[in-house]
């Protein structure tokens, strides 16, 4: 049965996807060299900028902790549990939406979710949880449960003219297959757990990007209609992939191809 699925999937994806033996891929030494680049990640500058922005618009770490009703000591672990259902919002929110609300409360016009200032500030806010393990709780209440289910559905739903879903390239059957020199990544905590390493510096874009922004890029390439940042489906996708990456240590900013 598994073999049949693999054949069908590989036929579906034949236009661009070939398996490891058929196409050259990077060596371990090459991969190590790219991994070493994390030491000097240009996104460290952006995260530094984000720290200044948080100070200016949100009262820094203390201001954020107060807004979230936790102590500053509890803040890292609390951030490691995002996205969360928050009563004041009456919905499940990602960290960037919390920052928007806090800016607004402090009398500032919130940064757009897609702005580089928000990416910088959001990356810094998540980096507060660096070293913590992802501890999202999708059973905490019915709202986050629903968000998780919506995210799973969005992940698996085939859309667009090619009839692709996120799952087409990220199911356990095709993980490791090489697509244009890159192995298709395992998105779980057993693999590279992207939920723990985005926001990241995207080398091909020379800029800092967020997880949701990366989803958009992926959708765009696969010819799927792009879902807006901060929408229930997008937050659901983040919830779903964060749950997949649960237990993985957060290390922000990441560095991606």
């Amino acid at each position: 049965m598994k073999g049949t699925i693999k054949i069908v999937l590989s036929l579906t994806l034949l236009w661009s996807l070939s398996f490891a033996s058929e196409q050259f891929s990077m060596s371990d030494a090459d991969r190590e060299m790219y991994a070493e680049m994390l030491e000097d990640n240009p996104a460290d500058i952006m995260v530094g900028n984000g720290s200044e922005l948080l100070e200016e618009y949100c009262g820094g770490d203390a201001g954020l902790a107060e807004f979230l009703n936790v102590s500053e000591d509890e803040l890292p672990a609390y951030i490691a549990g995002f996205p969360r259902y928050l009563k004041d919002f009456k919905q499940v929110v990602a960290l960037d939406q919390v920052l928007q609300a806090l800016m607004s409360k402090n009398g500032h016009k919130p940064f757009a979710l897609k702005s580089s200032d928000m990416f910088d500030m959001g990356a810094y806010a998540k980096s507060i949880a660096n070293g913590e393990k992802i501890q999202i709780d999708v059973d905490a209440n019915k709202h986050i449960k629903e968000s998780y289910e919506l995210g799973k559905l969005t992940f698996e739903q085939k859309r667009g003219s090619r009839g692709l879903s996120c799952l087409s390239c990220h199911s356990s059957q095709v993980i490791g297959s090489v697509l244009r020199t890159q192995p298709l990544p395992d998105l779980s905590a057993k693999g590279n757990a992207p939920a723990a390493t985005w926001p990241a510096y995207r080398m091909t874009k020379s800029s800092l990007r967020t997880l949701q922004r990366r989803f958009q890029g992926c959708m765009n390439n696969a010819l799927l209609a792009v879902i807006p940042l901060g929408s229930p489906e997008m937050v659901g996708l983040e919830v779903y992939l964060t749950q997949e990456a649960k237990g993985f240590e957060i290390a922000i900013p990441g560095l991606k191809r």
């Binding site: 050259f24 030494a29 090459d30 060299m33 790219y34 680049m37």
Partner: peptide, 16 residues
């Protein structure tokens, strides 16, 4: 001289 044999992206190639 350390460079990757295969660069995954021509815009950012590490050289040491």
């Amino acid at each position: 001289l350390k460079v990757p044999e295969i660069a995954e992206n021509g815009a950012v190639v590490p050289v040491t």
